[in-house]
């Protein structure tokens, strides 16, 4: 398929664009490792006081931390995805160029963001994770099927993460300055994805709610598949439903957005 080849090319381009910034990648690896260390000792202190918090033992909690560091930039939970670029293009009017091309805006940015995510997973994710696994006592599965399931859950997480951030970025068509929305989305995503603490530890109604929100597809879902705490098929279904819903919402908003004035000369 000709169309498929285009989006593969876009994804490859997305991967290579990030791969050109080697110093930034090394700096990112360092940051993720240091951040991981801080969180690990915080978690260890917490789990010392409250063993089996959220149903995790200490090794599982430590694994969760390093997983979070591996996926932080991959899923752009801390920002740094395509959204900043798209918002800037909407603000300056450069998005006009994206619109007259014979390509779909949403698929284009999805492909580009998946390329970026894959690079971040390999370039920024693997090293901190390997460091954590070597230095600390972690709980990793030996079954390759579990690992495959984990990777699939990460892939789903990438698409859900894109779906959320695409909606955030499109808001710039109306707001012209997306900074506020991006910061709100970042704060919400950081908490609701389980980056601060696993969502399992939140009790009562709050816990019930955050666990069904789309953000739980990002970190919590792949982590629970890897730690053997969730049924993989059920997890994929949950993520898949959110992915489809968000992408569909993105399409709706996109068609409304492109009917609006494209700003600038």
């Amino acid at each position: 398929m000709g169309t498929g080849r285009l989006y593969v090319a876009v994804a490859v381009g997305g991967f290579r664009r990030y791969a050109t910034y080697r110093v930034a990648t090394v700096a990112g690896v360092f940051t993720n490792t240091v951040f991981g260390l801080i969180l690990v000792y915080t978690y260890l202190a917490l789990w010392e006081e409250r063993p089996q918090l959220g149903g995790y033992d200490q090794a599982q909690a430590v694994t969760y931390v390093w997983l979070g560091q591996a996926l932080l930039s991959t899923l752009a939970i801390g920002g740094g995805g395509f959204e900043d670029e798209l918002i800037e293009r909407i603000r300056t009017g450069d998005v006009a160029i994206d619109l007259y091309r014979p390509a779909d805006l949403q698929l284009w940015w999805l492909a580009s963001d998946l390329g970026r995510a894959l690079f971040q997973l390999l370039g920024r994710g693997v090293v901190p994770f390997a460091f954590g696994a070597l230095v600390f006592d972690v709980a990793l599965p030996s079954d390759p099927v579990t690992w495959a399931g984990f990777l699939l859950a990460v892939l789903f997480g990438m698409v859900v993460g894109f779906g959320i951030r695409y909606l955030v970025a499109l808001s710039a068509f109306w707001l012209m300055d997306g900074t506020g929305v991006v910061q709100m989305a970042w704060l919400l995503g950081f908490f609701c994805s389980g980056m601060l603490l696993p969502l399992n530890v939140f009790p009562g109604l709050l816990g019930e709610i955050v666990r069904v929100l789309p953000w739980s597809s990002l970190l919590q879902a792949p982590a629970d598949v890897l730690l053997g705490r969730a049924d993989p098929l059920g997890t994929f279904a949950f993520q898949g439903v959110w992915a489809v819903a968000l992408l569909a919402a993105g399409r709706l908003v996109q068609s409304a957005a492109t009917r609006r004035v494209v700003q600038g000369g």
């Binding site: 000709g2 080849r5 285009l6 090319a9 876009v10 381009g13 290579r16 664009r17 050109t20 910034y21 300056t92 009017g93 450069d94 006009a96 160029i97 007259y100 091309r101 014979p102 390509a103 000369g265």
Partner: peptide, 26 residues
């Protein structure tokens, strides 16, 4: 279409990469 003040090229990548993309896109 050529907009003098905008670019259709991939900013971070070698020029040839943008052309390869055009190859697929069109």
């Amino acid at each position: 279409v050529v907009f003098g003040q905008r670019t259709t090229l991939w900013w971070d990548l070698p020029l040839i990469d943008s052309y390869k993309l055009m190859h697929r896109m069109y």
